[in-house]
Design a protein around this nucleic acid. Structure first.
Length: 562
RNA sequence: UGGGGCGUGGCCAAGCGGCAAGGCGCGGGACUUUGGAUCCCGUAUUCGGAGGUUCGAAUCCUCCCGCCCCAACCA
Protein backbone atom coordinates (compact mmCIF):
# COMPACT_ATOMS: atom_id res chain seq x y z
CA UNK A 1 0.00 0.00 0.00
CA UNK A 2 1.73 3.14 -1.14
CA UNK A 3 1.12 6.56 0.41
CA UNK A 4 -1.50 8.72 -1.20
CA UNK A 5 -0.15 12.08 -2.22
CA UNK A 6 -1.95 14.60 -0.07
CA UNK A 7 -2.45 18.08 -1.37
CA UNK A 8 -0.68 20.03 1.31
CA UNK A 9 -1.02 23.41 -0.29
CA UNK A 10 -2.32 24.91 2.88
CA UNK A 11 -5.29 27.14 3.03
CA UNK A 12 -4.10 30.37 4.49
CA UNK A 13 -4.62 31.34 8.08
CA UNK A 14 -3.76 34.34 10.20
CA UNK A 15 -0.40 32.92 11.25
CA UNK A 16 0.74 32.25 7.70
CA UNK A 17 -0.32 35.76 6.83
CA UNK A 18 1.74 37.21 9.63
CA UNK A 19 4.75 35.15 8.67
CA UNK A 20 4.36 36.19 5.05
CA UNK A 21 4.09 39.80 6.17
CA UNK A 22 7.28 39.50 8.24
CA UNK A 23 9.02 38.11 5.20
CA UNK A 24 7.75 40.97 3.09
CA UNK A 25 9.07 43.56 5.52
CA UNK A 26 12.25 41.65 6.16
CA UNK A 27 11.62 41.63 9.89
CA UNK A 28 13.58 38.43 10.44
CA UNK A 29 15.71 38.70 7.34
CA UNK A 30 13.29 36.49 5.44
CA UNK A 31 13.96 33.55 7.72
CA UNK A 32 11.31 31.31 9.18
CA UNK A 33 12.42 29.19 12.10
CA UNK A 34 9.76 27.55 14.22
CA UNK A 35 9.80 24.95 16.93
CA UNK A 36 7.59 22.27 18.39
CA UNK A 37 8.20 22.31 22.16
CA UNK A 38 6.55 19.35 23.93
CA UNK A 39 7.00 18.66 27.60
CA UNK A 40 7.91 14.96 27.95
CA UNK A 41 5.25 14.26 30.53
CA UNK A 42 2.86 12.25 28.40
CA UNK A 43 2.23 11.01 24.90
CA UNK A 44 1.41 13.28 21.98
CA UNK A 45 -2.23 13.48 20.92
CA UNK A 46 -4.15 14.70 17.90
CA UNK A 47 -4.10 18.23 19.32
CA UNK A 48 -0.32 18.14 19.25
CA UNK A 49 -0.53 16.93 15.67
CA UNK A 50 -2.24 20.21 14.83
CA UNK A 51 0.67 22.12 16.32
CA UNK A 52 3.25 19.86 14.68
CA UNK A 53 1.67 20.27 11.26
CA UNK A 54 1.44 24.02 11.79
CA UNK A 55 5.04 24.49 12.89
CA UNK A 56 6.74 22.02 10.56
CA UNK A 57 4.39 22.98 7.74
CA UNK A 58 5.23 26.66 8.08
CA UNK A 59 8.95 25.90 8.03
CA UNK A 60 8.58 23.65 5.00
CA UNK A 61 6.44 26.08 3.02
CA UNK A 62 8.59 29.12 3.78
CA UNK A 63 11.88 27.38 3.20
CA UNK A 64 12.88 27.49 6.86
CA UNK A 65 13.28 24.87 9.53
CA UNK A 66 11.49 23.60 12.59
CA UNK A 67 13.21 22.45 15.75
CA UNK A 68 12.07 19.76 18.10
CA UNK A 69 12.68 21.04 21.58
CA UNK A 70 11.82 19.25 24.77
CA UNK A 71 10.56 21.62 27.40
CA UNK A 72 12.13 19.60 30.17
CA UNK A 73 12.16 22.06 33.04
CA UNK A 74 10.19 20.03 35.56
CA UNK A 75 11.96 16.76 36.44
CA UNK A 76 9.20 15.63 38.74
CA UNK A 77 6.85 14.97 35.85
CA UNK A 78 9.06 14.06 32.96
CA UNK A 79 10.34 10.72 31.77
CA UNK A 80 12.58 9.25 29.10
CA UNK A 81 9.78 6.97 27.90
CA UNK A 82 7.84 10.04 26.86
CA UNK A 83 10.85 11.56 25.12
CA UNK A 84 11.26 8.43 23.01
CA UNK A 85 7.56 8.17 22.23
CA UNK A 86 7.36 11.82 21.20
CA UNK A 87 10.25 11.52 18.77
CA UNK A 88 8.80 8.36 17.26
CA UNK A 89 5.42 10.02 16.84
CA UNK A 90 6.72 13.18 15.19
CA UNK A 91 8.77 11.11 12.77
CA UNK A 92 5.86 8.83 12.04
CA UNK A 93 3.73 11.85 11.22
CA UNK A 94 6.28 12.56 8.55
CA UNK A 95 8.35 15.41 9.96
CA UNK A 96 12.07 15.78 10.38
CA UNK A 97 13.89 18.14 12.68
CA UNK A 98 17.25 17.31 11.15
CA UNK A 99 20.10 18.42 13.41
CA UNK A 100 17.76 20.45 15.51
CA UNK A 101 16.89 18.26 18.44
CA UNK A 102 17.12 20.51 21.47
CA UNK A 103 16.22 20.56 25.13
CA UNK A 104 15.52 23.42 27.44
CA UNK A 105 17.93 21.61 29.74
CA UNK A 106 20.71 22.22 27.19
CA UNK A 107 20.44 25.83 28.27
CA UNK A 108 20.41 25.50 32.05
CA UNK A 109 23.91 26.96 32.41
CA UNK A 110 23.15 29.91 30.14
CA UNK A 111 19.86 30.49 31.87
CA UNK A 112 21.66 30.57 35.20
CA UNK A 113 24.13 33.14 33.92
CA UNK A 114 21.30 35.27 32.62
CA UNK A 115 19.51 35.03 35.94
CA UNK A 116 22.65 36.33 37.62
CA UNK A 117 22.67 39.15 35.10
CA UNK A 118 19.11 40.09 36.04
CA UNK A 119 19.99 40.02 39.71
CA UNK A 120 22.93 42.29 39.03
CA UNK A 121 20.76 44.76 37.22
CA UNK A 122 18.29 44.74 40.11
CA UNK A 123 15.61 42.91 38.12
CA UNK A 124 15.48 39.71 40.11
CA UNK A 125 15.65 38.74 43.74
CA UNK A 126 15.67 35.74 46.01
CA UNK A 127 12.43 35.43 47.90
CA UNK A 128 12.12 33.61 51.22
CA UNK A 129 8.34 33.44 51.11
CA UNK A 130 6.96 29.96 51.54
CA UNK A 131 4.32 28.98 48.96
CA UNK A 132 1.34 29.94 51.11
CA UNK A 133 2.74 33.36 51.78
CA UNK A 134 3.53 33.91 48.15
CA UNK A 135 -0.02 33.08 47.23
CA UNK A 136 -1.26 35.40 49.93
CA UNK A 137 0.84 38.28 48.67
CA UNK A 138 -0.01 37.74 45.03
CA UNK A 139 -3.42 39.33 45.46
CA UNK A 140 -6.42 38.24 43.46
CA UNK A 141 -7.91 38.91 40.05
CA UNK A 142 -9.38 42.15 41.31
CA UNK A 143 -6.98 43.17 44.06
CA UNK A 144 -3.35 44.06 43.50
CA UNK A 145 -0.64 42.00 45.14
CA UNK A 146 1.73 43.18 47.86
CA UNK A 147 5.47 43.13 47.85
CA UNK A 148 7.37 40.41 49.65
CA UNK A 149 9.72 41.60 52.43
CA UNK A 150 12.53 39.91 50.47
CA UNK A 151 12.00 42.27 47.58
CA UNK A 152 14.29 44.95 48.94
CA UNK A 153 17.22 42.66 49.54
CA UNK A 154 20.59 43.95 48.31
CA UNK A 155 22.06 42.80 45.06
CA UNK A 156 25.04 41.31 46.85
CA UNK A 157 22.83 39.31 49.18
CA UNK A 158 20.69 38.11 46.27
CA UNK A 159 23.78 36.98 44.42
CA UNK A 160 25.01 35.10 47.45
CA UNK A 161 21.67 33.47 48.18
CA UNK A 162 21.12 32.47 44.57
CA UNK A 163 24.53 30.84 44.43
CA UNK A 164 23.71 28.94 47.59
CA UNK A 165 20.35 27.89 46.14
CA UNK A 166 22.22 26.33 43.28
CA UNK A 167 24.69 24.77 45.68
CA UNK A 168 21.88 22.93 47.40
CA UNK A 169 22.06 24.68 50.74
CA UNK A 170 18.32 25.17 51.04
CA UNK A 171 15.31 22.94 51.31
CA UNK A 172 12.87 22.33 48.48
CA UNK A 173 10.33 25.09 48.38
CA UNK A 174 12.10 27.27 50.89
CA UNK A 175 13.22 29.97 48.47
CA UNK A 176 12.70 31.05 44.89
CA UNK A 177 14.28 33.46 42.50
CA UNK A 178 11.72 35.97 41.29
CA UNK A 179 11.70 38.62 38.61
CA UNK A 180 11.12 42.09 40.05
CA UNK A 181 8.36 43.45 37.86
CA UNK A 182 5.14 44.84 39.37
CA UNK A 183 3.09 43.37 42.18
CA UNK A 184 0.17 45.61 41.21
CA UNK A 185 0.07 44.59 37.55
CA UNK A 186 -3.43 43.71 36.36
CA UNK A 187 -1.85 40.79 34.50
CA UNK A 188 -1.05 38.35 37.26
CA UNK A 189 1.83 36.87 35.31
CA UNK A 190 3.70 40.11 35.84
CA UNK A 191 3.38 40.09 39.66
CA UNK A 192 6.99 39.10 40.26
CA UNK A 193 6.87 35.68 38.59
CA UNK A 194 9.01 32.86 39.93
CA UNK A 195 12.05 32.14 37.76
CA UNK A 196 13.60 29.28 39.73
CA UNK A 197 12.39 26.85 42.32
CA UNK A 198 14.38 24.38 44.37
CA UNK A 199 13.73 20.73 43.50
CA UNK A 200 16.19 18.16 44.74
CA UNK A 201 15.09 15.72 42.09
CA UNK A 202 17.28 14.20 39.46
CA UNK A 203 16.51 15.12 35.92
CA UNK A 204 16.28 12.59 33.11
CA UNK A 205 19.03 14.38 31.21
CA UNK A 206 21.05 16.47 33.63
CA UNK A 207 20.95 13.96 36.44
CA UNK A 208 21.87 15.59 39.74
CA UNK A 209 23.76 18.49 38.27
CA UNK A 210 21.00 20.86 39.31
CA UNK A 211 18.68 21.28 42.23
CA UNK A 212 17.16 24.51 40.99
CA UNK A 213 15.01 24.37 37.88
CA UNK A 214 13.75 27.22 35.72
CA UNK A 215 10.05 27.87 35.30
CA UNK A 216 8.44 27.65 31.88
CA UNK A 217 8.26 31.41 31.32
CA UNK A 218 11.86 31.89 32.25
CA UNK A 219 13.10 29.09 30.03
CA UNK A 220 10.89 29.21 26.99
CA UNK A 221 11.51 32.59 25.43
CA UNK A 222 15.20 32.39 26.23
CA UNK A 223 15.43 28.99 24.53
CA UNK A 224 13.61 30.44 21.54
CA UNK A 225 16.08 33.30 21.47
CA UNK A 226 19.09 31.02 21.70
CA UNK A 227 17.86 28.92 18.81
CA UNK A 228 17.05 31.91 16.66
CA UNK A 229 13.38 31.04 16.49
CA UNK A 230 11.50 33.66 14.48
CA UNK A 231 7.91 32.71 15.25
CA UNK A 232 7.15 31.07 18.55
CA UNK A 233 3.72 29.59 18.08
CA UNK A 234 1.72 28.47 21.09
CA UNK A 235 -1.83 28.06 22.26
CA UNK A 236 -4.26 30.72 23.47
CA UNK A 237 -3.71 30.24 27.18
CA UNK A 238 -0.24 31.72 26.75
CA UNK A 239 -1.56 34.96 25.40
CA UNK A 240 -1.41 36.40 28.92
CA UNK A 241 2.18 35.26 29.15
CA UNK A 242 3.35 37.15 26.09
CA UNK A 243 4.06 40.36 28.08
CA UNK A 244 6.29 38.29 30.33
CA UNK A 245 7.91 36.52 27.39
CA UNK A 246 8.69 39.96 26.01
CA UNK A 247 9.80 41.37 29.38
CA UNK A 248 12.48 38.73 29.96
CA UNK A 249 13.90 39.10 26.47
CA UNK A 250 13.95 42.88 26.73
CA UNK A 251 15.45 42.82 30.23
CA UNK A 252 18.24 40.63 28.90
CA UNK A 253 18.59 42.63 25.71
CA UNK A 254 18.83 39.52 23.56
CA UNK A 255 17.36 38.45 20.21
CA UNK A 256 13.59 38.64 20.38
CA UNK A 257 11.31 36.18 18.55
CA UNK A 258 7.60 36.81 18.03
CA UNK A 259 5.14 34.77 20.05
CA UNK A 260 1.84 34.06 18.28
CA UNK A 261 -1.10 32.23 19.81
CA UNK A 262 -3.76 30.03 18.20
CA UNK A 263 -6.71 28.00 19.49
CA UNK A 264 -5.95 24.44 20.50
CA UNK A 265 -7.92 21.60 18.96
CA UNK A 266 -10.81 19.98 20.77
CA UNK A 267 -12.21 16.78 19.32
CA UNK A 268 -15.67 15.45 20.05
CA UNK A 269 -16.26 12.22 21.98
CA UNK A 270 -12.89 12.25 23.65
CA UNK A 271 -10.80 14.15 26.16
CA UNK A 272 -7.59 15.86 25.26
CA UNK A 273 -5.95 16.99 28.46
CA UNK A 274 -2.80 15.08 29.33
CA UNK A 275 -3.97 14.91 32.90
CA UNK A 276 -7.15 13.07 31.93
CA UNK A 277 -5.42 10.85 29.41
CA UNK A 278 -2.86 9.90 32.04
CA UNK A 279 -5.68 9.06 34.41
CA UNK A 280 -7.29 6.74 31.84
CA UNK A 281 -3.97 4.96 31.47
CA UNK A 282 -3.18 4.76 35.17
CA UNK A 283 -6.61 3.55 36.15
CA UNK A 284 -6.60 0.90 33.47
CA UNK A 285 -9.64 2.27 31.68
CA UNK A 286 -7.58 1.77 28.53
CA UNK A 287 -4.68 -0.60 27.97
CA UNK A 288 -2.07 2.14 27.63
CA UNK A 289 -1.18 5.36 25.87
CA UNK A 290 -1.37 3.48 22.58
CA UNK A 291 -4.76 1.92 23.20
CA UNK A 292 -6.55 2.26 19.84
CA UNK A 293 -9.35 4.20 21.53
CA UNK A 294 -7.01 6.92 22.71
CA UNK A 295 -6.75 10.21 20.77
CA UNK A 296 -2.98 9.88 21.02
CA UNK A 297 -0.82 9.63 17.93
CA UNK A 298 0.31 6.22 19.17
CA UNK A 299 -3.29 5.16 19.66
CA UNK A 300 -4.38 6.37 16.25
CA UNK A 301 -1.42 4.64 14.65
CA UNK A 302 -2.25 1.38 16.35
CA UNK A 303 -5.85 1.85 15.34
CA UNK A 304 -4.74 1.93 11.71
CA UNK A 305 -4.82 5.65 10.95
CA UNK A 306 -2.28 6.86 8.42
CA UNK A 307 -0.03 9.88 8.86
CA UNK A 308 -1.44 11.21 5.60
CA UNK A 309 -4.96 11.13 6.99
CA UNK A 310 -3.93 12.93 10.15
CA UNK A 311 -2.06 15.59 8.22
CA UNK A 312 -5.02 16.06 5.92
CA UNK A 313 -7.26 16.45 8.97
CA UNK A 314 -4.95 19.08 10.41
CA UNK A 315 -5.07 20.98 7.14
CA UNK A 316 -8.82 20.88 7.00
CA UNK A 317 -9.56 22.07 10.51
CA UNK A 318 -7.75 25.33 9.93
CA UNK A 319 -5.96 27.56 12.39
CA UNK A 320 -7.77 30.40 14.11
CA UNK A 321 -8.30 31.94 17.52
CA UNK A 322 -11.87 30.91 18.24
CA UNK A 323 -12.46 28.08 20.69
CA UNK A 324 -13.59 25.09 18.71
CA UNK A 325 -14.84 21.52 18.97
CA UNK A 326 -14.22 19.56 15.81
CA UNK A 327 -16.53 16.64 15.13
CA UNK A 328 -14.94 13.21 15.12
CA UNK A 329 -16.77 12.65 11.82
CA UNK A 330 -14.24 14.86 10.06
CA UNK A 331 -11.27 12.82 11.30
CA UNK A 332 -13.06 9.64 10.24
CA UNK A 333 -13.79 11.11 6.86
CA UNK A 334 -10.10 11.80 6.38
CA UNK A 335 -9.02 8.20 7.06
CA UNK A 336 -11.76 6.75 4.94
CA UNK A 337 -10.80 8.97 2.05
CA UNK A 338 -7.16 7.98 2.31
CA UNK A 339 -7.74 4.28 2.88
CA UNK A 340 -10.37 4.04 0.17
CA UNK A 341 -7.70 4.89 -2.35
CA UNK A 342 -4.98 2.71 -0.87
CA UNK A 343 -6.28 -0.24 1.09
CA UNK A 344 -6.51 -3.66 -0.50
CA UNK A 345 -9.98 -5.21 -0.34
CA UNK A 346 -10.49 -8.50 1.41
CA UNK A 347 -13.47 -10.45 2.63
CA UNK A 348 -13.95 -11.32 6.26
CA UNK A 349 -16.99 -12.35 8.24
CA UNK A 350 -17.22 -10.93 11.71
CA UNK A 351 -20.39 -12.57 13.05
CA UNK A 352 -20.50 -15.85 11.17
CA UNK A 353 -23.61 -17.64 9.99
CA UNK A 354 -23.27 -20.86 8.02
CA UNK A 355 -24.60 -20.89 4.45
CA UNK A 356 -24.81 -24.29 2.78
CA UNK A 357 -25.07 -24.32 -1.01
CA UNK A 358 -27.16 -27.45 -1.47
CA UNK A 359 -26.52 -27.98 -5.16
CA UNK A 360 -22.76 -27.54 -4.83
CA UNK A 361 -20.93 -30.89 -4.66
CA UNK A 362 -19.37 -31.57 -1.29
CA UNK A 363 -15.61 -31.40 -1.45
CA UNK A 364 -15.58 -29.46 -4.70
CA UNK A 365 -13.59 -26.22 -4.63
CA UNK A 366 -13.40 -23.47 -7.22
CA UNK A 367 -11.38 -20.32 -7.18
CA UNK A 368 -13.04 -17.08 -8.16
CA UNK A 369 -11.21 -13.94 -9.15
CA UNK A 370 -11.58 -10.90 -6.91
CA UNK A 371 -10.46 -7.33 -7.49
CA UNK A 372 -7.92 -6.07 -4.95
CA UNK A 373 -8.85 -2.42 -5.16
CA UNK A 374 -11.45 -1.00 -7.52
CA UNK A 375 -9.92 2.44 -6.99
CA UNK A 376 -6.53 1.24 -8.19
CA UNK A 377 -6.37 -1.20 -11.10
CA UNK A 378 -2.64 -1.64 -10.59
CA UNK A 379 -3.41 -3.47 -7.35
CA UNK A 380 -4.51 -6.40 -9.50
CA UNK A 381 -6.70 -9.34 -8.59
CA UNK A 382 -6.50 -12.44 -6.45
CA UNK A 383 -8.17 -15.84 -6.36
CA UNK A 384 -10.46 -16.79 -3.53
CA UNK A 385 -11.65 -20.35 -2.84
CA UNK A 386 -15.37 -21.06 -3.03
CA UNK A 387 -17.02 -24.23 -1.76
CA UNK A 388 -20.24 -25.76 -0.49
CA UNK A 389 -20.11 -24.39 3.02
CA UNK A 390 -19.59 -20.71 3.50
CA UNK A 391 -19.61 -18.19 6.28
CA UNK A 392 -21.77 -15.15 5.75
CA UNK A 393 -22.60 -12.27 8.05
CA UNK A 394 -25.51 -12.77 10.44
CA UNK A 395 -26.74 -9.33 9.41
CA UNK A 396 -27.08 -10.52 5.85
CA UNK A 397 -29.95 -12.87 6.56
CA UNK A 398 -33.34 -11.93 7.96
CA UNK A 399 -36.17 -14.21 8.82
CA UNK A 400 -38.52 -11.26 8.50
CA UNK A 401 -36.92 -8.94 6.01
CA UNK A 402 -37.92 -5.29 6.37
CA UNK A 403 -38.84 -3.18 3.35
CA UNK A 404 -35.92 -2.44 1.05
CA UNK A 405 -33.81 -5.17 2.63
CA UNK A 406 -31.74 -6.37 -0.33
CA UNK A 407 -29.97 -9.25 1.36
CA UNK A 408 -30.90 -12.86 2.06
CA UNK A 409 -34.27 -14.08 3.26
CA UNK A 410 -36.33 -17.10 2.40
CA UNK A 411 -36.85 -17.21 -1.36
CA UNK A 412 -34.71 -14.17 -2.05
CA UNK A 413 -31.73 -14.01 -4.35
CA UNK A 414 -28.46 -12.36 -3.53
CA UNK A 415 -25.05 -12.16 -5.14
CA UNK A 416 -22.10 -13.67 -3.33
CA UNK A 417 -19.46 -11.18 -4.27
CA UNK A 418 -17.27 -12.34 -7.17
CA UNK A 419 -18.83 -15.82 -7.01
CA UNK A 420 -22.41 -16.81 -7.79
CA UNK A 421 -25.96 -15.77 -7.29
CA UNK A 422 -27.73 -17.87 -4.70
CA UNK A 423 -31.35 -18.22 -3.72
CA UNK A 424 -32.26 -18.96 -0.15
CA UNK A 425 -34.30 -22.15 0.13
CA UNK A 426 -34.36 -22.82 3.82
CA UNK A 427 -32.91 -21.97 7.19
CA UNK A 428 -32.57 -23.63 10.56
CA UNK A 429 -33.15 -22.22 14.00
CA UNK A 430 -31.92 -23.28 17.37
CA UNK A 431 -35.12 -24.52 18.98
CA UNK A 432 -33.96 -23.33 22.38
CA UNK A 433 -32.96 -19.77 21.52
CA UNK A 434 -34.86 -19.16 18.32
CA UNK A 435 -31.59 -18.00 16.80
CA UNK A 436 -31.00 -18.69 13.11
CA UNK A 437 -28.05 -21.09 12.99
CA UNK A 438 -27.85 -22.09 9.35
CA UNK A 439 -29.08 -20.87 6.01
CA UNK A 440 -29.44 -23.09 2.98
CA UNK A 441 -29.65 -22.15 -0.65
CA UNK A 442 -28.92 -23.07 -4.24
CA UNK A 443 -26.59 -21.39 -6.63
CA UNK A 444 -27.09 -20.60 -10.29
CA UNK A 445 -24.15 -22.07 -12.25
CA UNK A 446 -24.75 -19.57 -15.06
CA UNK A 447 -23.83 -16.64 -12.84
CA UNK A 448 -20.18 -17.43 -12.20
CA UNK A 449 -18.25 -14.33 -11.22
CA UNK A 450 -21.47 -12.80 -10.00
CA UNK A 451 -22.90 -11.95 -13.39
CA UNK A 452 -26.61 -11.33 -13.05
CA UNK A 453 -28.03 -13.00 -16.10
CA UNK A 454 -31.48 -11.89 -17.07
CA UNK A 455 -32.38 -10.26 -13.78
CA UNK A 456 -31.45 -7.43 -11.51
CA UNK A 457 -29.75 -8.39 -8.29
CA UNK A 458 -29.84 -5.59 -5.78
CA UNK A 459 -27.91 -7.18 -2.98
CA UNK A 460 -24.31 -8.32 -2.91
CA UNK A 461 -22.88 -9.87 0.22
CA UNK A 462 -19.43 -10.97 1.26
CA UNK A 463 -18.55 -14.50 2.28
CA UNK A 464 -15.67 -16.76 3.08
CA UNK A 465 -15.26 -20.49 2.37
CA UNK A 466 -15.63 -22.28 5.72
CA UNK A 467 -13.10 -24.96 4.94
CA UNK A 468 -10.44 -22.47 3.89
CA UNK A 469 -11.09 -19.54 6.19
CA UNK A 470 -8.55 -18.22 8.65
CA UNK A 471 -9.78 -17.59 12.16
CA UNK A 472 -9.30 -13.99 13.18
CA UNK A 473 -9.83 -11.93 16.28
CA UNK A 474 -11.34 -8.60 15.44
CA UNK A 475 -11.56 -5.65 17.78
CA UNK A 476 -14.42 -3.31 17.10
CA UNK A 477 -14.00 0.12 18.58
CA UNK A 478 -16.51 2.80 19.34
CA UNK A 479 -15.98 6.24 20.84
CA UNK A 480 -14.44 6.30 24.31
CA UNK A 481 -17.21 8.57 25.55
CA UNK A 482 -20.92 8.48 24.92
CA UNK A 483 -21.31 12.26 24.75
CA UNK A 484 -19.65 14.62 22.30
CA UNK A 485 -18.31 16.91 25.00
CA UNK A 486 -17.36 14.83 28.04
CA UNK A 487 -15.31 17.73 29.34
CA UNK A 488 -18.48 19.70 29.91
CA UNK A 489 -19.54 17.44 32.73
CA UNK A 490 -17.77 17.44 36.07
CA UNK A 491 -18.10 13.68 36.25
CA UNK A 492 -16.52 13.09 32.88
CA UNK A 493 -15.62 9.54 33.76
CA UNK A 494 -19.25 8.55 34.17
CA UNK A 495 -19.61 9.24 30.46
CA UNK A 496 -17.19 6.52 29.43
CA UNK A 497 -18.69 4.30 26.76
CA UNK A 498 -19.07 0.77 28.14
CA UNK A 499 -19.06 -0.58 24.58
CA UNK A 500 -16.00 1.23 23.32
CA UNK A 501 -14.38 -2.14 22.64
CA UNK A 502 -16.05 -5.29 21.44
CA UNK A 503 -13.95 -8.27 20.52
CA UNK A 504 -15.35 -10.83 18.09
CA UNK A 505 -13.98 -14.00 16.53
CA UNK A 506 -14.62 -14.22 12.85
CA UNK A 507 -13.33 -15.81 9.68
CA UNK A 508 -11.17 -14.22 7.05
CA UNK A 509 -9.92 -15.01 3.58
CA UNK A 510 -7.03 -17.51 3.71
CA UNK A 511 -4.40 -14.94 2.72
CA UNK A 512 -5.18 -12.89 5.82
CA UNK A 513 -3.85 -15.60 8.11
CA UNK A 514 -0.36 -14.22 7.72
CA UNK A 515 -1.14 -10.53 7.30
CA UNK A 516 1.96 -8.48 8.05
CA UNK A 517 2.00 -6.35 11.18
CA UNK A 518 0.56 -2.93 10.58
CA UNK A 519 -1.01 -3.80 7.24
CA UNK A 520 -4.30 -2.17 6.43
CA UNK A 521 -7.24 -3.61 4.54
CA UNK A 522 -10.74 -2.82 3.66
CA UNK A 523 -12.97 -5.71 4.66
CA UNK A 524 -15.60 -5.34 2.01
CA UNK A 525 -18.86 -3.85 3.20
CA UNK A 526 -17.53 -3.53 6.74
CA UNK A 527 -14.77 -1.01 7.10
CA UNK A 528 -11.05 -0.52 7.32
CA UNK A 529 -9.02 -2.84 9.52
CA UNK A 530 -5.38 -3.22 10.34
CA UNK A 531 -3.42 -5.89 12.12
CA UNK A 532 -2.66 -5.07 15.71
CA UNK A 533 1.07 -4.45 15.98
CA UNK A 534 1.23 -5.87 19.50
CA UNK A 535 -1.02 -8.87 19.50
CA UNK A 536 -1.31 -10.13 15.94
CA UNK A 537 0.59 -13.33 15.06
CA UNK A 538 1.03 -15.27 11.87
CA UNK A 539 -1.71 -17.87 11.93
CA UNK A 540 -3.58 -15.95 14.63
CA UNK A 541 -4.20 -12.53 13.21
CA UNK A 542 -5.76 -9.79 15.31
CA UNK A 543 -7.41 -6.92 13.51
CA UNK A 544 -8.34 -3.49 14.78
CA UNK A 545 -11.22 -1.73 13.12
CA UNK A 546 -9.87 1.66 12.14
CA UNK A 547 -13.24 3.00 11.03
CA UNK A 548 -16.38 1.53 9.55
CA UNK A 549 -17.55 2.17 6.03
CA UNK A 550 -20.35 4.66 5.60
CA UNK A 551 -23.45 2.61 6.22
CA UNK A 552 -26.44 3.94 4.33
CA UNK A 553 -28.54 0.91 5.14
CA UNK A 554 -28.00 1.35 8.87
CA UNK A 555 -29.11 4.93 8.46
CA UNK A 556 -32.26 3.94 6.60
CA UNK A 557 -33.11 1.30 9.14
CA UNK A 558 -32.49 3.64 12.02
CA UNK A 559 -34.76 6.22 10.41
CA UNK A 560 -37.56 3.70 9.92
CA UNK A 561 -37.24 2.23 13.35
CA UNK A 562 -37.16 5.63 14.94
C1' U B 1 -16.67 43.64 39.67
C1' G B 2 -9.05 43.29 37.25
C1' G B 3 -6.53 41.67 32.81
C1' G B 4 -6.27 38.96 28.14
C1' G B 5 -9.00 36.74 24.08
C1' C B 6 -13.16 35.13 21.05
C1' G B 7 -18.30 35.38 18.79
C1' U B 8 -20.02 33.92 10.37
C1' G B 9 -25.20 27.74 8.89
C1' G B 10 -25.31 21.34 13.12
C1' C B 11 -19.33 21.26 13.33
C1' C B 12 -14.85 23.64 11.42
C1' A B 13 -13.68 27.98 8.46
C1' A B 14 -12.74 31.89 4.37
C1' G B 15 -13.95 36.91 4.29
C1' C B 16 -9.51 42.65 5.54
C1' G B 17 -16.09 48.59 2.97
C1' G B 18 -18.88 46.54 -2.69
C1' C B 19 -23.15 43.35 -1.46
C1' A B 20 -21.82 35.46 2.51
C1' A B 21 -15.67 30.70 -0.37
C1' G B 22 -14.73 25.78 0.87
C1' G B 23 -14.80 21.21 3.83
C1' C B 24 -17.40 17.85 7.21
C1' G B 25 -22.40 16.61 8.39
C1' C B 26 -27.32 16.41 6.74
C1' G B 27 -31.36 15.81 2.73
C1' G B 28 -32.48 14.37 -2.39
C1' G B 29 -31.09 12.15 -7.13
C1' A B 30 -27.73 9.39 -10.79
C1' C B 31 -24.53 5.34 -11.16
C1' U B 32 -22.89 0.84 -8.96
C1' U B 33 -20.91 -7.07 -8.62
C1' U B 34 -18.88 -3.14 -1.61
C1' G B 35 -26.55 -0.24 0.58
C1' G B 36 -18.63 1.47 -0.29
C1' A B 37 -16.55 4.80 -3.84
C1' U B 38 -17.83 8.40 -7.60
C1' C B 39 -21.06 12.17 -9.69
C1' C B 40 -24.94 15.88 -9.60
C1' C B 41 -28.43 19.05 -6.73
C1' G B 42 -30.07 21.30 -2.10
C1' U B 43 -28.68 23.22 2.75
C1' A B 44 -26.99 31.39 6.31
C1' U B 45 -31.74 37.35 2.18
C1' U B 46 -27.64 36.72 6.63
C1' C B 47 -22.72 37.26 9.83
C1' G B 48 -24.07 37.47 18.91
C1' G B 49 -27.61 42.04 19.64
C1' A B 50 -28.91 47.24 19.18
C1' G B 51 -27.70 51.84 17.35
C1' G B 52 -24.49 54.88 14.16
C1' U B 53 -20.99 56.30 9.81
C1' U B 54 -21.38 55.38 4.41
C1' C B 55 -24.34 55.42 -2.06
C1' G B 56 -23.04 50.70 0.14
C1' A B 57 -20.98 47.20 6.40
C1' A B 58 -19.87 40.43 8.37
C1' U B 59 -16.04 43.98 7.40
C1' C B 60 -15.46 51.07 10.36
C1' C B 61 -17.48 53.52 15.26
C1' U B 62 -20.46 53.19 19.99
C1' C B 63 -22.99 50.59 23.56
C1' C B 64 -24.82 45.93 25.16
C1' C B 65 -24.94 40.39 25.50
C1' G B 66 -22.53 35.65 25.58
C1' C B 67 -18.36 32.27 25.85
C1' C B 68 -13.08 30.98 26.99
C1' C B 69 -8.33 31.79 29.73
C1' C B 70 -5.41 33.79 34.12
C1' A B 71 -4.84 34.15 41.27
C1' A B 72 0.92 26.23 40.46
C1' C B 73 7.55 27.17 43.52
C1' C B 74 2.87 23.11 36.13
C1' A B 75 3.65 23.64 31.01
Amino acid sequence: MSPTPVDESKASNFIRERVAEDNRTGRFGGQVITRFPPEPNGYLHIGHAKSICLNFGLARDFGGRCHLRFDDTNPTKEEQEYVDAIMADVRWLGFDWGEHLHHASDYFEQLYAWAVQLIESGKAYVDDSPPEQMRELRGTLTEPGRESPSRRRSIAENLDLFARMRAGEFLDGSRTLRAKIDMAAPNINLRDPVMYRIRKTSHQRTGDAWCIYPMYDWAHGESDSLEGITHSICTLEYEDHRPLYDWYLDALGIYHPQQIEFARLNLSHTVMSKRKLLQLVQEGVVSGWDDPRMPTIAGLRRRGYTPEAIRDFCDRIGVAKADNMVELALLEHCVREDLNRRALRRMAVLRPLKLVVENWPAGHVEEVEAVNNPEDPSAGTRRVPFSRELWIEQDDFREDPPKKYFRLSLGAEVRLRYAYIVRCTDFKKDPATGEVVEVRGTYDPATRGGEAIGRKIRGTIHWVSAAHAAPAEVRLYDTLFVKPKPDDEDAWKTLLNPSSLETVRGWAEPSLASAAPGSRYQFERLGYFSTDPRDSRAGAPVFNRTVGLRDTWAKIERAETG
